[in-house]
Computed example of a mutant assay.
Amino acid sequence: MISWIAFDADDTLWENEIYYQNAQKKMQEILAGYCSPETTNETLLQTETRNIPYFGYGIKSFGLSMIETAVQISNGEISAREIQIILESLKEMISTPVKLLPGVIKTIKILSKDYHLMVITKGDLLDQERKFKNSQLSPFVEVFEVVNAKEKSTYQGILDRWHILPKQFVMAGNSLRSDVLPVAAIGGIGVLISHYLTWDHEKSVNSDLQNFPYYEIDKIKKLPGLIDKINQSEQN
């Protein structure tokens, strides 16, 4: 029987990617004299991916990659004022109020009555803690984890630390790569909750994870019903 349900945070519980894309649009405007918006986006994604081993995930890594990309595309000609605009867009992202996605608070309240709830997110520690604190979800969540990466070993370590069996554990999120398949690979239950925006980096899936089964729903409000069906199927 399922006893623990974990959630990704960004674009599962609250809006996130839209703010990154808005910042990218400002960067596209700054670099419009050097290249097309498509080239800016492609170069930024390449830079972000290359920088993950150095800076990890999250808003600070994103900001450093934006500046590096701007310097690269402009051949070092970008001005201090233009870099300042990029930095201001990052500060604007950090100061943006948390916007919960539809159905989140009701679903969390329902599930918290019968299950232990956990949030597992990756990214910048300060930024994620700020968003969680302002989300109004903390009274219903027993465990909040900010990790450097979401891999099989990450989830196994969390389960071991909290003495949870994989078959008792559900992880729900909007990324197959990070939230769903690594959990399915260790024997847990992965649930993909679709979101209209997903970071391009999260759309690629490692080949060793592609064949593991998982569930998919289009709205978080459908999760309690899915959990009931999974529990019923295990009893039969």
Rank of each mutant, 00 (worst) to 15 (best):
M1A: 09
D10A: 06
N16D: 08
N22Q: 13
N22F: 09
N22V: 08
K25W: 08
Q28W: 09
I30V: 05
S36L: 06
E38T: 11
T39M: 14
N41K: 15
E42D: 14
E42W: 13
T43W: 10
T43Q: 12
L44G: 05
E48L: 11
R50K: 15
N51V: 08
N51I: 04
Y54P: 07
G56N: 08
G56H: 07
S61L: 09
F62Y: 12
F62M: 04
S65Y: 02
S65L: 04
I67W: 07
I67R: 06
V71W: 12
Q72A: 15
Q72Y: 12
S79H: 08
A80R: 15
A80K: 14
E82M: 11
I83Q: 03
I85G: 07
E88W: 10
S89H: 07
S89P: 06
E92K: 12
S95E: 12
P97K: 06
K99M: 09
K99I: 11
P102K: 02
V104F: 05
T107K: 04
I108M: 03
K109N: 09
K109H: 11
K109G: 07
I110R: 13
S112A: 13
S112G: 03
K113C: 14
H116D: 09
L117E: 00
M118L: 07
D124Q: 05
D127A: 15
D127S: 14
Q128K: 07
E129A: 11
F132E: 01
K133C: 09
Q136I: 08
E145V: 06
V146P: 00
N148P: 13
A149P: 08
K150D: 05
Y155R: 02
Y155C: 00
Q156R: 15
I158G: 02
H163C: 11
H163P: 07
P166H: 03
Q168W: 05
F169A: 01
L176K: 01
R177F: 08
V180K: 00
V180Y: 00
V183W: 02
A184T: 01
A184Q: 02
G188P: 04
I189L: 09
G190T: 02
L197K: 10
T198M: 11
W199M: 12
H201Y: 15
S204M: 13
V205M: 06
N206D: 15
N206M: 15
E216R: 15
K221D: 15
I230P: 01
Q232H: 12
S233H: 08
S233G: 06
E234Y: 13
